[in-house]
């Protein structure tokens, strides 16, 4: 099933980059610098959405003792952390030429950094506990408590007077960018989704096999 997502992801990445670099016009305010948007915005969205998904699966796994859901949460964590780190790096590289600084302790940037720490905390906590059941439970508590951070990131640009600009794409109303820019952004977002699905499904399979192996090794050792 993985190639069904991985191959379209690769095609859409290339298409999104083509539209983003060769079709979309130069921004009248930011010049070419805005082209970082095509990777920065999807990465930031993925970081937040994957966290919510991770917390959701962790909660299901905890509440219903559903081991597969817990394993799904573990599989999502690394990819979510990767996208969050990418959003922070590309954000810094975008901030320098437009704001004059790589980093500021602005509400959105700080809360996104906290998101990365939550992912790292979840991954390290699970890695530190040998018993998978206890690891899943401890991870679930952290993931669920941390989910409060996601709306804080999302609304930070409205709640506080931040250096970071407001939303360009809104649920309601027209987006405030040219059509090819929006097209490139949405294609890149779709590519990121497909990539995330492919990688997470692959990792889920590896995690399932790892746990089976550990269980059989334990049974073998005990017997």
């Amino acid at each position: 099933m993985v190639p069904w997502f991985a191959i379209p992801a690769a095609i859409l990445f290339l298409l999104g980059l083509y539209v983003g670099f060769f079709v979309a016009p130069t921004d009248f305010q930011q010049g070419e610098a805005y082209r970082i948007m095509f990777i920065h915005v999807p990465a930031a969205w993925m970081g937040m959405l994957l966290y919510v998904l991770m917390a959701f699966y962790a909660a299901i796994g905890w509440a219903f003792n559903a081991r597969l859901a817990s394993m799904m949460a573990s599989a999502l964590a690394t990819t979510g952390a990767m996208f969050t780190l990418l959003a922070l790096i590309t954000g810094a590289l975008w901030g320098k030429p437009t704001w004059g600084t790589y980093w500021a302790w602005d509400a959105r940037m700080t809360s996104t950094l906290i998101l990365l720490f939550l992912y790292i905390g979840f991954i390290s906590l699970q890695a530190a506990i040998d018993d998978p059941k206890r690891a899943d439970r401890a991870g679930a508590v952290l993931a669920i408590v941390g989910v409060i951070n996601v709306p804080i990131i999302y609304f930070s640009v409205q709640w506080w007077n931040t250096l970071h600009q407001g939303a360009t794409i809104r649920m309601m109303g027209k987006p405030t960018i040219a059509a090819p820019m929006l097209a490139a952004l949405l294609i890149m977002l779709a590519a990121c989704w497909l990539y995330a699905i492919a990688v997470v499904l692959y990792r889920l399979r590896v995690i399932i096999q790892e746990r089976e192996q550990n269980a059989s090794w334990l049974a073998h050792g005990a017997g």
Partner: peptide, 24 residues
């Protein structure tokens, strides 16, 4: 040259390539 923003733009996409490649 990306209108003088080469370092920032290509740096961003290089970071993406390294992180995605690293994850895989």
């Amino acid at each position: 040259s990306m209108g003088g923003y080469a370092f920032y733009i290509w740096g961003s996409y290089l970071a993406a390539l390294i992180l995605v490649g690293g994850e895989i």
